[in-house]
Computed example of a mutant assay.
Amino acid sequence: MRTPDPQPRGIRLKARHVGVFYGEKQALFDVSLDVPEKAVTSLIGPSGCGKTTFLRCINRMNDTIEGCRVVGDITLDGQDIYDPSLDVVELRARVGMVFQKPNPFPKSVFENVAYGPRIHGLARSKADLEEIVVASLKRAGLFEEVKDRLREPGTGLSGGQQQRLCIARAIAVSPEVILMDEPCSALDPIATAVIEELIDELREHFTIVIVTHSMQQAARVSQKTAFFHLGWLIEEGPTEVILTHPRHKKTQDYITGRIG
């Protein structure tokens, strides 16, 4: 288990009484959660319990689903992210996302990382853009492996390299928060270990929220854990406490394998 943070962190993201409906069906009920800055918060629980639904609320990915309705409040640095005047494109630059399966664009390694900074106007010149791409690949622990393949397709990399490329793509626009939806579930144990090490390094610079099925992974990478069950947030707190001394019987049952 990672060493807990010695000092308390500020709160970057707040969710209050969040509910999600798909048509008439309610998928998430009254979720209130604080996400600390520069730390990793894990969302754990059985399949279909609302973890990914909640994650997708944070960068308004649920907006893309017809008939989906979100109630309650989510604020990033005090700003309501569901304010009608908010630019969703700008929000998704501030809140990056890494998906379950690596999904590089059908472009070169360089263009995968350059795409975001280019469309958001973050580079003043070609040299600026190259600097951002190289720095992002270095932060994602990938540059040394791909520095001679920058013009080759990103889809030609291994699964673990593709996922790190997607992480480099996410961090290239300097987000404040990175959401990760089971980023290791499609990877082998060696690639998983590399990604976990990377997550631990990235939390020095970013606020990270990760959905994981693996309690071992939650123990290894996160400082805070939230347990979801059947659309409800059952309990949350420091990872070590949730995984070793949970207060709620449902959490205990999940951790000991009685439900899942």
Rank of each mutant, 00 (worst) to 15 (best):
P102I: 00
F110W: 09
V134H: 07
L150I: 01
K126T: 11
I132K: 11
G67C: 02
G116W: 00
K101L: 05
S136I: 05
P102Y: 02
G154N: 04
A123N: 09
L76M: 02
F143V: 12
V70A: 08
A114I: 03
K107Y: 09
K101M: 07
L157R: 11
F143S: 15
R151D: 14
M97D: 00
E145Y: 05
G67A: 01
P84N: 10
G96S: 05
R124N: 12
L86M: 13
F143M: 14
P117S: 08
A140H: 04
D77C: 11
I65L: 11
G78S: 00
Q100F: 01
N103I: 08
V133D: 03
A127V: 09
G96A: 14
V89F: 09
R149L: 11
F110S: 07
L86N: 01
F143R: 15
A140K: 05
R69P: 00
V71F: 06
A140E: 04
Y82G: 00
L91T: 01
G116Q: 03
A140N: 06
L76E: 01
V133G: 04
Q100G: 01
Q100Y: 00
E145D: 15
V113I: 06
I65A: 06
G154C: 11
G156R: 15
G78N: 01
G141Y: 00
P84I: 11
L91S: 01
Y82I: 00
K107R: 14
E144M: 10
K126N: 12
T75M: 10
S136C: 04
L137T: 08
V98S: 09
V133Y: 06
K101W: 07
G116L: 02
V95Y: 10
I81A: 03
D83A: 15
A114V: 04
V95A: 14
K101T: 08
E66Y: 05
A123S: 09
V134I: 12
E145G: 10
E145F: 04
D128C: 08
V146C: 09
K126A: 13
V113P: 01
S108V: 07
I132T: 10
P102Q: 03
L86S: 01
F99K: 05
D77T: 07
E131R: 15
G156T: 15
F110G: 05
P106I: 04
L91R: 02
D87N: 14
E111P: 00
N112M: 04
E66S: 14
E90H: 06
H120P: 03
E66W: 04
V146E: 03
V109R: 10
V109G: 09
P84R: 13
H120N: 12
D128S: 10
N112Y: 03
P117Y: 07
L91K: 03
V134S: 06
A123E: 08
T75H: 07
Q100I: 03
V95F: 10
D73Y: 08
G78A: 02
D80R: 11
D87A: 03
R92Q: 13
I81H: 01
R139K: 15
I74K: 03
V89Y: 05
